[in-house]
């Protein structure tokens, strides 16, 4: 047999996590900070529980996505659910005054490069 002897990973497919939805309702930005408003309760979807536990401290959406190892869209949908239930609140990043105040892209890339080399 050519197939692998064992499977690693999880049996859940993403559409079962989102309940078949593929479009997020709320427009959460990648860097929107998420904060839990309550403790996870029993019987909750495990992703919701993890998000609530993760976001006891403000956490960015991308970070949540990386921690849960789930695509951004799925996390957005899950957060949308939690937000609709009032279990999390979102802190949208303040828009930058102007593009000029932001650091140069080259500088950021350099920082990234340096970090990678650590």
């Amino acid at each position: 047999m050519s197939r692998k002897p064992v499977d690693i990973g999880d049996p859940d497919r993403l559409y079962t996590v989102t309940g078949g939805r593929s479009e997020a309702d709320d427009a959460f930005d990648l860097v929107t900070l998420i904060v839990s408003e309550c403790e996870p309760t029993a019987g909750m979807q495990s992703e919701h529980t993890r998000i609530l536990e993760l976001c006891r401290h403000p956490t960015a959406l991308v970070e949540v996505s990386a921690e849960l190892k789930l695509p951004i869209t799925v996390v957005r949908i899950l957060l949308g659910d939690l937000h609709a239930m009032g279990k999390v609140s979102a802190r949208h990043p303040r828009a930058a005054e102007s593009v000029a105040t932001l650091p140069e892209t080259a500088l950021l890339q350099e920082v990234l490069h340096g970090l990678r080399n650590l």
Binding site: P5, V6, D7, I8, D10, P11, R13, S46
Partner: peptide, 18 residues
């Protein structure tokens, strides 16, 4: 498939329903 680790009930149910 053969799983090399225990699978929690939630994943079992989702894996089935999916």
């Amino acid at each position: 498939r053969v799983w090399n680790k225990p699978i929690v009930m939630e994943s079992i149910l989702r894996g089935s329903v999916g």
